[in-house]
Amino acid sequence: MAEVRSLRRGEVALRDLSKSFRINGRPLSVLRNLNLDIRSGECLAIVGASGSGKTTLLRVLAGLETADSGRALIDGRPVTGVGRERAVIFQEPRLLPWLTVLGNVAFGLEVRGEDPGRADERARHYIALVGLADFQDAYPKQLSGGMAQRVGLARALTVQPEILLLDEPLGALDAMTKLTMQQELERIWREENVTMVLVTHDLEEALYLADRVLILPKQKDASPRLIGIDLPRPRDRSEARFVRYRQELLREFGLH
């Protein structure tokens, strides 16, 4: 596995990417001429007002939506659909209710044709990594929201993606669980050496996890802003520099 990991890349490039939808016959421009390079192993956070196109951008990267013009490239190859080097974590855990935790986590590998024994073995490893070893035979109904979200995370990690696409993965969690999960995400990101694109509403979460923060504007004529977060890890939310970054982000949203 180690040699596979060193070969792993997970670079993302957007070239003049545009996407619009039609709502009641009228076109709605959501992403306009977006250019961006995400480095291998980087954690990029995407923030922006509701409706600014965060999910749309993530779905284009996932291969679930096609761009109108421009290109999204993964490791230099254009995205034409879903791909094995990517895994998506949606806002909801999207677990199969008829499978146990183990079955759900192994699901991704199994549909990719991995031998069930090997899939289970790898699944167990990642279930332990997200701290659910005692619950591998539980059904989704028996899990709390935070636990279910961790199962979704383990399922994504089990396929060992180069790129992890996360759409507000902690949005539905209570404040305490959220903080714990942010810590866990950071650790896993470091240990797995995976490129992470994290859509979030939560500015602190972006500052805690991201190398850079992409701010999508609400008005489509404004251009997106990219802010590098130059802070040592693990980050301390109460540190002066962290607080200064947060003020900077708030200013971007016109808040002080």
Binding site: A62, L64, V82, G83, R84, R86, A87, V88, F90, E92, R94, L96, F107, G108, V111, R112, V159
Partner: peptide
């Protein structure tokens, strides 16, 4: 349909 989309993201064929 969200579960179906999830399975597709993991590369499941139509039959799977």
């Amino acid at each position: 349909s969200k579960l179906i989309e999830m399975a597709r993201v993991y590369g499941a064929s139509r039959l799977t």
